[in-house]
Nucleic acid binder design. Structure first.
Length: 879
RNA sequence: GGGGGCAUGGCGGAAUUGGUAGACGCAGCGGACUUAAAAUCCGCAGACGGCAACGUUGUGGGGGUUCAAGUCCCCCUGCCCCCA
């Protein structure tokens, strides 16, 4: 064995990481010399600093890093930042459970995760790091909140919260278990009304929906999910007059929203949500007890239980009747669990013949079913299968009879508007964004409540409203901030009288709705960012993160962007041009199907026939998202310790396409490590030949002329073809749709051809091959590429780093073949192939094919009835 | 129930967007090197039949369009996601 150094990634990687850091290699370029087209913003969704880096993070950041590195090699000035989504419950829980100050706990976690991240060799500009819990960041979150307030887009109203009656505190939804009990006290959680802050996202619902088609760089399904979430439906509001027991109008009205005004003549009852404010007033004395009991019952149900299709619908009549404005019929007023108070008007009209839920409800309570729409071209619809919910033609609808339902919607809405009993209405499923949280570890809402001045914004120059230290974080007795009198009591900025601070903090989605803007100007102490800085770097060219943020985070970030655009703070409509949603990282999971217990892979003796180590029962084996409780997690640090970051990066990118789930497999990791070792040995061989890269110019620009007048051997031609094929294929794999897995397989192919042909190659051809291989490898395995680059004689100073090279261009001349394999098909089946000149024309190919032995054999001497020639590919002979 | 997606060897996954199915890798088998093992290198490998040349068959199932279908159309089955 030679005494050449072995591939030892650990020492090599930390050496290069230090070198890159000391030479500030990943610093964002300060000024653009050229046009804005030269800048590129690559962004990962920032993590919550839990303290532990998991494989899902690794996959996310490695993908973004490769994209950033490729763009740098392509000559772009790249912004690739990182930060921390640092407010949130876990820090507060740590305080409750272990008495650690949330800020200290969070900063410790950030420090440890930052170190773990750095071991991955990510080309992040750490100078732009931010944490949402630091006051130099949340100061601007507060400033932006005041922008919303000023724009009339922030307001307060009553809304229900989860209240723990034992601990006397508000709970977040995730602190309430499936049975509606507090995670800590175990008490049954109650709904309680509190005055809370909302952002008026519904004011932008149309824009958020209408701009979705512009987002061509987003996965279709994310756009669909957002569209469904916004849920625009066009219909009408219709007013029904309340009548007294004698049937006389009381002047009072109930307004319903419906997408089917064409079915107004089929309304046989009206339903209010149990929470509808008029329920109490309209309930008759006889029904009062029953109605109250029903409301109590419903208040304990979740929304899902109430609205799921397969759950029974329940309701009670409240005794009062209303008049159908279209035909004057008197119909009963009900309350039912399937109607929600905060959608539409909280009241719907019951049309059993043409709505499935109404149909089920009517059958159950023996309410009238009046058909008013019939299928086109038929007479009556039989109601055995349920309601007829499709379009059709109107019957029993007075002067509207015979109209198709589409036209009838318009006509009836117009009639309603003309006669004062309704109007056209666009309704959204999207509701305003409740941003108030009655918690400590969040961004304080910067307003002051004054008895004489009302809600007073904290003046901008007094920001930030800092979180006080020393709050009571025992998780009891209400909001921690509200209990701190010294913090709560302030002078009103307006009148100077005694006033009180708002004690709610913001939903953490507020903090993450603008962090990507702050990275463009992270140290600004006068503004959240300058218009110049955001417009230079944004919108984000490529955003990478998990599909779990497909709706809320991405919708809120889009909402912020549009509001800030309207405030003149930035100059674009959408924050993220391209979005890549990466799949989960799954670990091998063993489960005992009888006991339901998960078994750690370490306890499974024979993975090919896994058995329970105690009972000996045969185990189920499958891949599932890594989690502690399933013992199927793989710690990134351990993988890096064993194989190095480059192997981990290569494995993650090669194992599956980025948007698909990835099954972690130790054997495959080993395989990647072997590939990198092969590359190392390949360079060893070149070092033995004393190949020096230092005098080789840029591949592509010079190689074409360099090799044009030289006679190359067949082996050299093949090697050059492999080199330039790899350039072409990998360039394509990294363009638009990111196919890292096939890009890496092309690297493997190239290295296989190199291993075969390098020995016989002249120095210039060999150098070109190495130069190309290493530059193409650099984004994926940055440490190894840099090391091999150095070993092959590149100057080690900063400008000569492999990461400062240019992405190679394929040389078309190198791709040219003299002969190609022409496939001969007979009646569409491949019957053989023929070596033919690559430039042969159609007629020649046809002749060559007809004369071939293959044709003789399969056509048995008869001339084909038809011949299809695809030049460069095949000839199909049809007998 | 509505909308969307997916289905390819033992496994992960490739396939100019209609043109040689199974690239690349993992696992497997055979060989070389070694006292031996590991590592490494070379070779084989969808299934079926055959000593072999070769043939048949084959991309969840069924039908269709086409000279040619993993790819396009229709129906069915199974799994996943979102919305109800």
């Amino acid at each position: 064995m030679s005494d050449a150094p072995r591939y030892q990634p650990q020492a090599l990687e930390s050496r290069w990481q230090q070198h890159w850091e000391s030479t500030a290699q990943h610093r964002t370029p300060a000024k653009l010399d050229g046009s804005c087209g030269d800048s590129y913003y690559a962004l990962s969704m920032f993590p919550y600093p839990s303290g532990n880096l998991h494989m899902g993070h690794v996959r996310n950041y490695v993908i973004t890093d490769v994209i950033a590195r490729v763009q740098r090699l392509r000559g772009k000035q790249v912004l690739h930042p990182m930060g921390w989504d640092a407010f949130g419950l876990p820090a507060e829980n740590a305080a409750i459970e272990r008495g650690i100050e949330p800020g200290i706990w969070t900063d410790q976690n950030i420090a440890s995760m930052r170190e773990q991240l750095k071991r991955l060799g990510l080309s992040i500009d750490w100078d732009r790091e931010l944490a949402t819990c630091h006051s130099d960041y949340y100061r601007w979150t507060q400033w932006l909140f005041l922008q919303f307030l000023d724009a009339g887009l922030a307001y307060q109203r009553d809304a229900s919260v989860n209240w723990d009656p034992i601990d006397q505190t508000v709970l977040a939804n995730e602190q309430v278990d499936g049975e509606g009990r507090s995670w800590r006290s175990g008490a049954l959680v109650e709904k309680r009304k509190l005055r809370q802050w909302f952002l008026k996202i519904t004011a932008y619902a149309d824009q958020l929906l209408d701009d979705l088609p512009k987002l061509e760089g987003w996965p279709e399904r994310v756009r669909t999910m957002q569209a469904n979430w916004i849920g625009r439906s066009t219909g009408a509001e219709l007013h029904f007059e309340v009548v007294d027991s004698s049937g006389a109008g009381t002047g009072e009205q109930i307004t319903v929203f419906t997408t089917r005004p064409d079915t107004i003549f089929g309304v046989s009852y009206l339903v209010l949500a149990p929470e509808h404010p008029r329920v109490a007033g309209l309930t008759t004395a006889e029904q009062a007890v029953q109605v109250q009991a029903f409301c109590d019952l419903v208040s304990r149900q979740s929304e899902l239980e109430r609205t799921a299709d397969d759950k029974p619908k329940r309701g009670v009549p409240i005794g009062t009747r209303v008049r159908n404005p279209a035909n004057g019929a008197l119909i009963p007023l009900w309350i039912a669990d399937y109607v929600l108070a905060d959608y539409g008007t909280g009241a719907v009209m019951g049309v059993p013949a043409h709505d499935q839920r109404d149909f089920v409800f009517a059958r159950q309570y023996e309410l009238a079913v009046q058909q008013v729409i019939i299928p086109q071209g038929s007479d009556e619809h039989a109601f055995e299968g349920g309601a007829w919910t499709e379009a059709g033609v109107l019957i029993h609808s007075g002067c509207f009879d015979g109209l198709p339902s589409g036209e009838a919607k318009r006509a009836i809405t117009e009639a309603a508007a003309g006669q004062g009993w309704g109007n056209a209405k666009v309704q959204f499923r999207l509701r305003d964004w409740l941003i108030s949280r009655q918690r400590y570890w969040g961004c304080p809402i910067p307003v002051i409540h004054c008895e004489s001045c009302g809600v007073v914004p904290v003046p901008a120059e007094q920001l930030p409203v800092e979180l006080p230290v020393g709050a009571n974080l025992e998780g009891k007795g209400g909001s921690p901030l509200a209990q701190l009198e010294s913090w709560v009591n302030v002078d009103c900025p307006c009148c100077g009288k005694a006033a009180k601070r708002e004690t709610d903090t913001m939903d953490t989605f507020m903090c993450s709705s603008w962090y990507f803007l702050r990275y463009s100007d992270p140290h600004n102490t006068d503004l959240p960012f300058t218009r110049e800085a955001v417009d230079r770097w944004l919108p984000v060219d490529q955003y990478v993160g998990g599909i779990e943020h497909a709706i809320l985070h991405l919708l809120y970030a889009r909402f912020f962007t549009k509001v800030l655009r309207d405030r003149g703070l930035l100059g674009f409509d959408e924050p993220f041009i391209h979005l890549l949603t990466q799949g989960m990282v799954q670990g091998i999971t063993y489960k005992n199907p009888h006991s339901g217990k998960y078994i750690a892979p370490g306890d499974v003796v024979d993975p090919s026939a896994p058995r329970d180590p105690i009972s000996g029962e045969v185990l189920e084996t499958f891949y599932e998202k890594m989690s502690k409780s399933k013992y199927n997690g793989v710690d990134p640090a351990q993988v890096i310790d064993k194989y190095g970051a480059d192997t981990a990066r290569m494995f993650i990118l090669f194992k599956a396409p980025p948007e698909k789930d990835l099954e972690w497999d130790d054997a495959d990791v080993e395989g990647q490590f072997r590939f990198l070792q092969r590359l190392w040995r390949l360079v060893d061989g070149a070092c033995a030949r004393d190949l020096q890269l230092s005098d080789l110019g840029r591949v592509g620009e010079q190689s074409a002329t360099q090799f044009a007048n030289t006679t190359l051997t067949a082996s050299e031609l093949e090697l050059r073809r492999a080199v330039h094929t790899a350039i072409a294929e990998i360039s394509e794999d990294l363009d638009g749709e990111y196919q890292f897995n096939t890009a890496i397989s092309e690297l493997m192919k190239l290295s296989n051809v190199m291993a075969e042909h390098l020995e016989a190659a002249s120095a210039p051809v060999a150098k070109e091959a190495f130069h190309t291989l290493l530059v193409l490898l650099a984004p994926f395995a940055p440490h190894l590429a840099e090391e091999l680059w150095l070993r092959l004689g590149a100057n080690p100073d900063n400008n000569c780093s492999i990461h400062a090279q240019s992405w190679p261009q394929p040389d078309p001349a190198a791709l040219v073949r003299e002969t190609i394999d022409l496939v001969i098909q007979v009646k569409g089946k491949m019957r053989g192939s023929l070596a033919v000149p690559a430039n042969a024309d159609k007629a020649t190919l046809e002749q060559l094919a007809l004369n071939s032995e293959i044709a003789q054999k399969w056509l048995e001497g008869k001339p084909p009835s038809r011949v299809i020639v695809v030049p460069g590919k095949l000839v199909n002979l049809v007998p």
